[in-house]
Design a protein around this nucleic acid. Structure first.
Lengths: 340, 340
DNA sequence: GTGAAAGCGCTAACAA
DNA sequence: TTGTTAGCGCTTTCAC
């Protein structure tokens, strides 16, 4: 059996309550006994039993994190951020991977809610209804998504797209196509909106393609359409899709960025490893994870605003897949060739 | 407050003990009361408080998982496997990411040990000593590594390398170089050994390069050396390194597999997404995660063998980066050119 | 087959 | 400042 508070009390010659106080609220106990208790605790290697403590305080010192897919590097970054912040605050974190199965979510949420003080919910696509339905009294912070009445941390997707379009416009692109992600994705909606607004503002034609699954094969499937759209640049819903695009374009012998520029979103590690390296919009998921935990912790102590919101900045990262727009004449010729 | 066993007892008109029994050991209670209790429990949405239960049973129904880096797709697969198996057995899992910092491990392990029934430890590089030092009485299962006296699940690295070398030999390669991973990595040791044995058996020259960090830039750094080694094929410690190799080779305009073949290990998702797609040795990390949990659970119930071992098969996946060996004369010429 | 009571390890009133 | 007591929600003897 592990060493309990009783053992420490006996060793230090004080009562259990004194041990408890000496360790949790040291200022309430005289310096001399405090020292004696702490020495005994250290000597015996005492660590309070969190379950027992939780039973009485109602706090578990655990946080829950729900992600759709741990194998997705984007969510891996979130997890690391959440972990780091949680550990710093002496919280442990339960992670639940829904395997992209939104229907499993309510059950998971309910199960989690019992054993944690708060939950970070990263479920880009499950319908809002499920959230409220699952309605536990455990505080929940949403990631990458806003639902009325819920605290959330998001990134400024629209501004990221603004940077992207302005970058392309500055390179002379006049016709840009967007390979859309899932219709139900909140981020996708934000991105479309930012794209549309900026395209109009800078006088760029925007061609909307999709929706495509947010995966490599989604990009593969979209590549030929993008090429045929007459656009000289394509913005993908995310980096994985952009990678698929690049792959198919490469297989067809289409030069990137000479013939067509490609731009992703998220800045997953892989983006810097392709050849040519992918220009993309970095979304600070690690920081977002940390912010979500901070928000949760704040919610747990003082209530503060009922549903705080935090939006993090995005940042264009220019690499090698975007370049000066090709001569429109050359493009037109090509298309003419093709239609012959 | 959540609904407790007391509420259910009141609702069903029985004692707490009967509720407890009806739910945990249904055969000990009469069918009619059992039904009544279960109905009440369901109606009230009762879920037992795991902490309270754990306090008395000594079981937490939690498992711990320590990985060096969640952003590494290999470990992501492990996590998913562990999760799946744990959830099936109604266990939750705490995940701790050491951020590749082996020195943080003992502390993490101790902290984890308090709140879980068993730990899956995935720490390829930390010295054996730390393990035994951390020596908790919580059962630990090692992944991808064997240490005397510890249960472990591993993959057959050596056999994977056998398949790799035989594949290359069959393609006519006579000189193969290995870009080694970290010296302290158990897997790397196994791979080197398998490589050496098979190379000798099939009459292939083996050139040992490295050790390199098991990252993309490790591969980038190794590429020129590999090319200069006179080998017509290069086997990388893992896929990420192979990707780095591919990148640098591509930047230098070296044709893969025409000039040189490249072979990775692990079969991470990215391997299928490169162009050309990477030939690699698949290691079943998802299954390994599940196996580790199964082992842990077995350890928890009946003791069984003190330190069970389980080794999973690896499987060569042939894609596009390995091809017929170039004419040796061509290679020689090239090198002659260069030395001029 | 069921209930009463004890107690897991801890903290929080309440006394002293 | 410290000790005593009660009790968190649950399981498990031990009676009945």
């Amino acid at each position: 059996m592990a060493v309990t508070i009783k053992d420490v009390a006996a060793a230090a010659g004080v009562s259990q309550s004194t041990v408890s106080r000496a360790l949790s609220m040291p200022e309430l106990v005289s310096p001399v006994t405090r020292a004696r208790v702490q020495a005994a605790a250290r000597r015996l290697g005492y660590e309070p039993n969190r379950a027992a403590r939780g039973l009485i305080t109602g706090r578990t010192a655990n946080l829950g994190l729900v992600v759709p897919d741990l194998a997705n590097p984007l969510f891996a970054a979130v997890v690391k951020g959440v972990q780091a912040a949680a550990r710093a605050a002496d919280y442990s974190v339960f992670i639940a991977d829904t395997d992209e199965d939104a229907s499993a979510e309510p059950g998971l949420l309910r199960a989690l809610a019992k054993q944690v003080d708060g939950i970070v919910l990263c479920s880009p696509r499950s319908p809002d209804a499920e959230l409220t339905e699952a309605g536990t009294d455990t505080p929940v912070v949403l990631m990458n998504r806003q639902v009325a009445g819920y605290p959330a941390v998001t990134v400024d997707n629209a501004d990221g797209m603004r940077q992207a379009v302005e970058h392309l416009a500055a390179l002379g692109h006049r016709r840009v196509c967007y390979v859309a992600g899932p219709r139900s994705s909140w981020s996708n909606g934000q991105r479309e909106q930012g794209l549309r607004a900026t395209a109009e503002a800078v006088g760029v034609d925007l061609v909307h393609l999709g929706h495509f699954p947010p995966r490599f094969d989604g990009g593969v499937a979209a590549a030929d359409l993008a090429l045929a759209s007459g656009a000289s640049a394509v913005v993908a819903y995310n980096d994985i899709v952009a990678l698929g695009l690049l792959s198919r374009l490469g297989a067809r012998g289409v030069a990137v960025p000479d013939r067509i520029s490609v731009l992703g979103c998220d800045d997953i590690p892989m983006s810097a490893m392709t050849h040519p390296a992918l220009t993309t919009v970095a979304v600070p998921q690690h920081e977002a994870g940390r912010a979500a935990v901070a928000m949760l912790l704040a919610l747990l102590s003082d209530a503060g605003p009922t549903a705080p919101q935090r939006e993090l900045a995005t940042q264009l990262v220019v690499r090698a897949t975007t370049g000066v727009a090709p001569d429109p004449a050359a493009l037109t010729d090509r298309r003419a060739d093709r239609s012959r």
